[in-house]
Design a protein around this nucleic acid. Structure first.
Lengths: 215, 215
DNA sequence: ATTATCTATAGATCTATAGATAATGC
DNA sequence: ATTATCTATAGATCTATAGATAATGC
């Protein structure tokens, strides 16, 4: 992962780029789109207007980078947290429980993933391939049963996204209980026996440390 | 529903309004947003530029009207088609099978519902309250079991939307089989026994006639 | 000396309105 | 005569770039 240690100049450039990406995430999370002027973006990022064009040639390009950053940051974090778990059904369920909780623990990232043009579903990197791999392992291990893995993956992503929207729109609901209820639904969908599904969604979550800053 | 028969002038006004709404749906379905100039919208609608402001005071207002129209039109059609079915589990499953098929039968409406800021999920009118009512009936009839109806509704909407996205993105898949597979997943989620769930998603669909034109 | 950031601005939109034209109602 | 649509345009953005300034590397 780490190549040449970046020079001071390279670090400065990266800081500007990160500031722009974070500003875009902030605005996107708040408003659901990037229909603001580039000037407003650079002001939010506290960066000179012209610097925008040193890094991106359009708002769409910045948006893509912002979504990709959120996806990658979250997937890497999940991978790290779950490295010690063996049972594929548990890996799957715990990933989903932790991802749902993002709306509480890292709302900016969560809202970017939610609004990100369904990126959570369809992206060829980030969370989707991880979830697919977990589902396949669970099927091979005889813990999950399903007819069509593509459809199952879509349903999982859809349940997760819709539940996160629900939590976001209705803050009086306790996020954790709602998310775990959705994960229970998904396990039942995969044919996991009721008692076993309830055990899995009540497992203690790994002690997690949010990454202080995403790259 | 029908008040005074609208005068010729009122019909003309409505025609202009409909042309704008349909143009917005067309553009929204194609691009996923309305980031085009009002001029492009009026040109698509084949309407004078200034007429826009006779009907809407901003693009956002037009977008709201376009999404609402799609939701209402679809909900009314479903209600009509399903009026003869008794078993609440069948009503629910058939609604979902027909809605999923929209991506094939009425792609413009389908894409508006998909992109409509999650309108299919959260709107207090249109499809969501129908689905809730159907689920509640099925629970009362002892056909569905679930812990939390809010979460269940979110999962249903999420599965449906994600599956429709899948069909839209991957045209080589046969829409009908994919949608029915997703509905099967949802029935299993609700604790319907496997054989019974498979019977329900294999039922013949009511002979449907698409509405020639939505109001 | 090189490279990135910042400031200022020209040119290209885009919005909202005002006034002219066309269609309807009586 | 009334009401809706259409055409033309003023004023307000907004984008992209050019040139100036500041930071880094040697």
């Amino acid at each position: 992962m780490s190549e040449q240690p970046p020079s001071r100049g390279e670090r400065r450039k990266l800081r500007t780029r990160s500031a722009l990406i974070e500003a875009a995430q902030e605005i996107y999370a708040e408003r659901g789109d990037l229909e603001v002027s580039i000037q407003q973006i650079t002001e939010t990022a506290d960066v000179g207007f012209g610097s925008f064009y040193n890094h991106f040639s359009s708002k769409a390009e910045l948006l893509d980078a912002a979504v990709a950053q959120a996806l990658e940051s979250h997937a890497a974090w999940l991978d790290n947290v779950l490295s010690g778990v063996d049972d594929p059904a548990e890996v799957f369920a715990t990933s989903m429980r932790l991802t749902g909780r993002l709306i509480r623990t890292r709302p900016r990232i969560a809202r970017v993933l939610l609004s990100g043009r369904g990126a959570l579903l369809t992206a060829s990197y980030g969370h989707a391939p991880h979830a697919r791999r977990d589902i396949e392992s669970a099927i091979d291990a005889g813990r999950f049963v399903t007819d069509d893995i593509e459809v199952a993956l879509a349903c999982v992503a859809g349940c997760l996204i819709a539940t996160m929207h629900l939590c976001d729109a209705d803050p009086k609901a306790t996020v954790d209980a709602v998310v775990d209820s959705a994960v229970l639904n998904v396990l039942l969908m995969f044919g996991v026996p009721n008692a076993e599904a309830r055990r899995i969604v009540a497992l203690p979550l790994p002690a997690v440390e949010q990454p202080a800053r995403a790259t």
